[in-house]
Design a protein around this nucleic acid. Structure first.
Length: 802
DNA sequence: TCTTGCCTATTC
DNA sequence: AATAGGCAAGAC
């Protein structure tokens, strides 16, 4: 058993397999599957994952592992298996699947440096200046100074050596602790022996005499005894005290205080819903539940009490929340109920903080994880429940490799641990609801709000009418009147600016010219903050032109309604209103999001104005009005899910109003009031929306009636991109049944990104056992062989059709 | 004859 | 992904 199979950190088609390595004597028995190792690969060293330990290899000139990068496995047996499954299902590389399961801090960093072979090189005049303090020359320094040929020659001459370093980015933070090994009596003795003028040292020793020999944090000790660094140092030298580095965690919730809460009594509906879940927990049975409950129906309390039961069994729980930094209220609820048993993993944390939270999970110091998408890979080994809140959210689908959906991973893990999976939503995805109707999932329904408060009344305002009657502002008469009314009554309003897919662009008023990105076929987005235009796909940036490049007109300016513009108009029309604006600009700073919400919750503003990010999770008693400024912007993006997304967004945001004693009202402004997704969102009628949308999907041949796989090919030249896509289409056809529909090749909705032309091919199918195998072959064939620079991206069950 | 660029195979 | 080796076209 001295051979390890290793998946190396080289994401490419031809290296997507296991390589065998010898385990050096000194680490035999210590190296285990799931550990990261540093291995030689070709001429360099890379990071790799040990997948298995064997006693024999078919390959006879094995290299040895350089060193292990972990003391204990970072992936357990189940996660290794899960990685294999991910690789197969999402058609990614093995290494990508493993990387996705770990925090970013654990991705290896590579460094190349030239080191001297002998001391004489250090004196060479042409090199002398560029050696750094460590006596090394980093590769990129050599590159910058154009000295690579010279340096390489020195390597060949044997004067220098090129060293490949593999570094783990994750740094554990430590604190210095001070303690004493002496007994109380010995300490008193020691104190007497000190010189009379060493008052500070005496005080420190006195501290230990008073508080016992306990170890304490150096910083605190210094503060409490008013001692300096040198005082402690001399005591250490006299060996009265000892110093030790102890690993510490960065605690993102350090300054928060969580009021302990206990279970609330459940309503009858909630009790009916929780019983089947508790039953599955009790029976240790896997079952997927779809918890369909209107906004404010108390889904969270069901989650909390289910988790409670799981914890009583000594098991662990994973809770997924969409982009958790957006719902600090949610984390607070879990921390309040389960205290220090909770780890939170979300995008608001720094890389280091995420790493710390993750290590708490690995060491079983917590029992509950609340996190965004990637938290589904939490390295627990005894999972008792997995909960996905707002299961319809598209952020659960990863848009890079591995292109997984957290829902699928959750069910896979739930099967492994024989535990229930709960998908909660007020507006379930059509896929999930259809599965519930077919009894693949068990449907649990909450129709009433917790306090029996009625759902808010919704009014839809036709903005075309407003325009006809001469109102050219962005607020309809109705919305404006209600806004004034709320301010008078000191109640709060939430205003949603729906602007996904409709960001501000720069257009000439005279000739209609819109400024496009030179590298991509998409218009540039206007950024007021820097007064520049940016491309969201390739990063291109340029100044706003003063005259139109087409017709030289000076009437060129930005269009599209941004939150700033709405804010300006609000302040003009309602100068007494206090407005909090939430968008990318105001929430980019760490913790800004939470702070703004806190301010709003404390009643420091009358109006909360924002984009999509305010639609979820807000729960403030004083909100009695919700206004949607333009409901239909999401409707016009080329995506078969656009109606569903519009309906969900409108329903979610409407649910923010009147959650407590005060009744709520909602005003939805739109240019297409007759569209069913807007009309039915107005009636808060999910069931009718479901039926209507299912008809549309059936006619169009879209999910949940068909599965979809999307192949996107890109290349520098249009012709190559088109012809390769054509070839792929022809290649796939004979491998699939007659029932599969292959659409394409067609140009992608964004035909060019970063000067690469994009063509795509869409496969619709119901049951194709050989599909994944065929798609693998496509990758092997077309992504590598000969034709360079061809990129083939395959997305099974895509959420972004662009 | 010696460089350069480009393609291909290889990496345990 | 990164490299070495092979080959052919250009530089002197």
């Amino acid at each position: 058993m001295n051979i390890a199979t290793v998946v190396v950190d080289v994401p490419a088609m031809n290296t997507d397999r296991e390589y065998d390595y010898l385990i050096p004597e000194k680490w035999s028995g210590m190296i285990q599957p799931g550990m990261r190792v540093n291995v030689p690969f070709g001429p360099r060293n890379v990071q790799g994952f040990v997948t298995d330990i064997r006693d024999h290899s078919d390959y006879d000139s094995l290299k040895a592992i350089v060193e292990p990068m972990d003391i204990l496995p970072v992936l357990n047996q189940e996660l290794l298996l899960l990685g294999e499954w991910l690789t197969e299902k999402t058609l990614c590389f093995k290494i990508q699947a493993f990387q996705a399961m770990l925090p970013a801090a654990m991705r290896a960093k590579y460094e190349k440096v030239f080191i001297p072979r002998d001391q004489q090189v250090l004196e060479k005049p042409e090199l002398k200046k560029i050696f750094n303090q460590k006596g090394e020359i980093p590769w990129d320094v050599g590159e910058k100074l154009n000295l690579l040929t010279l340096l390489k020659r020195e390597v060949e001459a044997g004067a220098l050596e090129l060293l490949y370093k593999v570094k783990s980015k994750g740094k554990k933070r430590t604190v210095k602790m001070i303690g004493t090994a002496l007994t109380k009596e010995e300490l008193i003795q020691a104190e007497k022996q000190l010189m009379g003028n060493s008052t500070k040292q005496k005080r420190v020793l006195q501290y230990f005499i008073d508080n016992g020999p306990d170890i304490c944090i150096k910083k605190q000790l210094m503060q409490e005894t008013d001692a300096g660094d040198s005082t402690i140092k001399s005591l250490l030298e006299k060996e009265y005290l000892f110093e030790r580095n102890v690993e510490s965690y960065r605690d993102p919730y350090e300054h928060h205080h969580f009021e302990k809460t206990t279970s609330f009594p459940l309503t009858e509906e909630q009790t009916n819903a929780i019983l089947p879940i508790l039953d599955a927990i009790e029976k240790k049975q896997h079952e997927t539940f779809l918890l369909y409950g209107v906004t404010g129906s108390g889904k969270t309390e069901i989650y909390l009490q289910s988790i409670q039961r799981v914890l009583e069994q000594g098991k662990e729980a994973i809770v997924l929340v969409p982009e958790i930094s957006l719902t600090p209220q949610m984390v607070r609820r879990f921390k309040s109920r389960f205290g220090n048993d909770v780890a939170a993993l979300h995008s608001g944390l720094s890389v280091g903080e995420k790493y710390d939270e993750w290590r708490k999970i690995l060491r079983k110091e917590v029992k509950v994880v609340v996190g965004a998408r990637s938290a589904i890979f939490a390295p627990f080994e005894n999972i008792g429940i997995i909960i996905i809140d707002e299961e319809h959210e598209t952020s659960y689908k990863q848009e890079e490799n591995p292109r997984y959906h957290a829902r699928d991973v959750a069910i896979k893990r739930g099967q492994f641990y024989q535990c229930p999976v709960i998908l909660g939503s007020a507006t379930p995805s059509l896929e999930s609801f259809a599965r519930a109707k077919k009894q693949v999932f068990s449907l649990l329904t909450l129709r009433k709000r917790m306090n029996n408060q009625a759902l808010p009344s919704v009014e839809i305002v036709d903005m075309r009418e407003e325009l006809r009657s001469g109102n050219r502002s962005m607020f309809s008469t109705k919305l404006f009147e209600k806004l004034q009314d709320r301010i008078k009554k000191k109640e709060q309003t939430v205003l949603l600016l729906n602007r996904r897919g409709h960001s501000s662009f720069v257009m000439c008023r005279d000739c209609g010219y819109v400024v496009q990105c030179p590298n991509c076929d998409i218009s540039l987005t206007f950024h007021r903050y820097s007064h520049s235009m940016k491309c969201h796909y390739c990063g291109f940036e340029s100044r706003v032109p003063n005259v139109c490049p087409e017709c030289q007109s000076e009437h060129i300016r930005y269009f599209g309604t941004g939150t700033q513009k709405v804010e300006e108009e609000l302040l003009k029309l309602l100068p007494e209103a206090r407005v909090i604006r939430m968008d990318v600009d105001t929430t980019s700073r760490k913790g800004a999001h939470e702070k703004l919400l806190q301010q709003f919750g404390d009643g420091k503003a009358d109006i909360l104005l924002g984009t999509q990010m305010i639609a979820k999770g807000l729960d403030f008693p004083n909100i009695t009005l919700v206004g949607v400024l333009s409901a239909d912007t999401t409707l016009h993006i080329p995506d078969f899910r656009s109606s569903e997304k519009t309906f969900q967004l409108l329903t979610q945001v409407s649910g923010r109003a009147g959650r407590h004693e005060l009744p709520g009202e909602v005003v939805i402004q739109t240019y297409t009031p007759e569209h069913y997704s807007i009309e039915l969102a107005g009636e808060q009628d999910y069931d009718r929306f479901y039926q209507k949308e299912m008809m549309v999907r059936k006619l169009g041949g879209y999910p949940p009636f068909y599965y979809v796989a999307l192949i996107t090919v890109s290349h520098d030249e249009v012709m190559t991109a088109a012809s390769v896509t054509e070839k792929i289409t022809k290649f796939i056809r004979p491998h699939l049944s007659d029932k599969a529909i292959i659409l394409g090749p067609v140009a992608s909705p964004i035909p060019r990104i970063n000067n690469r032309y994009r063509y795509q091919c869409l496969i619709k199918y119901k049951r194709e056992p050989k599909l994944n195998e065929t798609l693998r072959k496509v990758m092997e064939h077309f992504a590598t062989s000969g034709k360079k620079h061809i990129q083939v991206a395959i997305d099974v069950n895509p959420y972004m059709m662009m």
